[in-house]
Design a protein around this nucleic acid. Structure first.
Lengths: 236, 236
DNA sequence: GCATTCGATAATGAATACGTTAATGTATTG
DNA sequence: CAATACATTAACGTATTCATTATCGAATGC
């Protein structure tokens, strides 16, 4: 009875992830389905349905769903199965306040470490890629480079726990950011912000690195929230 | 064969938590055993052993252990069961950097909300209790009041996700803080800091609220790390 | 005596089985 | 006709079973 659902699981996703355990596989696949909007906000399915779709038993699916619930991507309510959580503007505000706080701390930590040019290389490259992508109006590539920049920065902060928390919140916001990517003003000054940030980090200017990134995130958050409000988008 | 372990599960803990599901029960009980240091850092047990101790099957225990792993309290390694994670000084630094960042953000958010006296009541009471406890040299009670203060502050920030992240990191650091509570200098200026913070929040002074709390946490973190280093405590 | 290989053991990851309980639809009653 | 009671069903939570595989120890060879 769970044979087909409104949204089918594409074959690629079904096989490409050759992970270790079924639980890990289930977690990865479901997460990807959600991030890619293949399972849109509000999408519901019972444990058994998900299990059938993924070709495994309920046990690992159940475990994966519990993890995803902790990750803030789904909610699991008895008798109704899992449900992909929609993101409201107020959720986005919460997320952006957290990201602003933690990422600027990451910038400060990175600046305090007096990194070598070698270590800064990754940030430089990502910045350059963002620039290039922007020139070509290739927003998808820009987003990729931007993501790389942020991940590098987190890595360079040296704080592993901070990194994993931030990556989780980036996941939560992913869908909304992708959906609005092409609606918001081109991120022209984003590149400049990033370049300035790299310089501050290179100079070991903790204060400045933190401030630049805080302002950068604040602005981005405000723009995004304004957009959501203007468009009346309430649950994404 | 799992009948008795070096460390027995006390009867109170075994029964007092009458939660809904076995999984939730297991999670709560194990968490409590770890926070109370009944299962000290490095403590190991197989799924089956834990299940026997808690009087349930492996299934809910397994689920609980996965959650606790995400919470950063245990690690689960195949064939060796769960292991209570020790906290190193470098872990403590990571945790304190995160707490400093997020809690000062919480203070800023609270200040920005222009709270009513009614809402500030909880903070006032907690501060007063800290004072009283300190006068009586009752550090346990002081710690309780301190915890209440921080939880109230998080609540007043209005950011639920931030609150839950912070509470998780407070959990991770709990053991170390309790162990060092009586070794570090009496938190005499802590009360003053908190009173000042409440005033800044009352006045709606975002900048000041953030700064005060940031400095407060930074100082506390430094003191704690210095202590750990002086005592050569490496895994708690 | 020490290292290595082989095999018994046990712990895990996953599937399955089972009892409980909430949701749904039907029948009954006012 | 509306509301309530009841029966049915299915989803879940947990226990149990099963296959796989790493680990530990003993036996063997050097």
């Amino acid at each position: 009875m769970a044979a087909e659902k409104a949204i089918e699981v594409s074959a690629e996703i079904k096989d490409e992830v050759a992970a270790k355990t079924m639980t890990a596989t289930a977690h990865l696949k479901i997460r990807q389905l959600i991030l890619d909007n293949k399972w849109p906000p509000g999408y519901q399915a019972t444990e058994q349905e998900v299990a059938s779709m993924l070709g495994m038993s309920r046990t690992p699916v159940r475990e994966a769903l519990m993890r995803l619930q902790q990750d803030g991507l789904v909610s699991v309510v008895p008798r109704h199965g899992m449900r992909v959580l929609p993101i409201s503007p107020s959720d986005m505000k919460e997320i952006y306040d957290i990201l602003t706080s933690l990422e600027s701390t990451a910038a400060e930590l990175a600046a305090a470490r007096h990194l070598t040019e070698e270590q800064l290389k990754g940030l430089e490259r990502a910045t350059a890629d963002m620039d290039k992508a922007l020139e070509r109006d290739d927003l998808d590539r820009w987003a990729q480079a931007d993501a790389r920049f942020h991940e590098q920065l987190l890595e360079l902060s040296g704080n592993k726990m901070l990194k994993s928390v931030v990556l989780n919140f980036i996941d939560r916001a992913h869908r909304v950011r992708m959906l609005t990517l092409k609606m918001r003003p081109k991120p022209v000054n984003s590149t400049r912000d990033h370049a300035e940030l790299v310089n501050a980090i290179r100079a070991g200017d903790v204060e400045k690195a933190g401030t630049i990134h805080r302002e950068h995130r604040r602005r981005a958050g405000r723009e995004l929230l304004d957009l959501l409000e203007r468009l009346g988008l309430n649950h994404l």
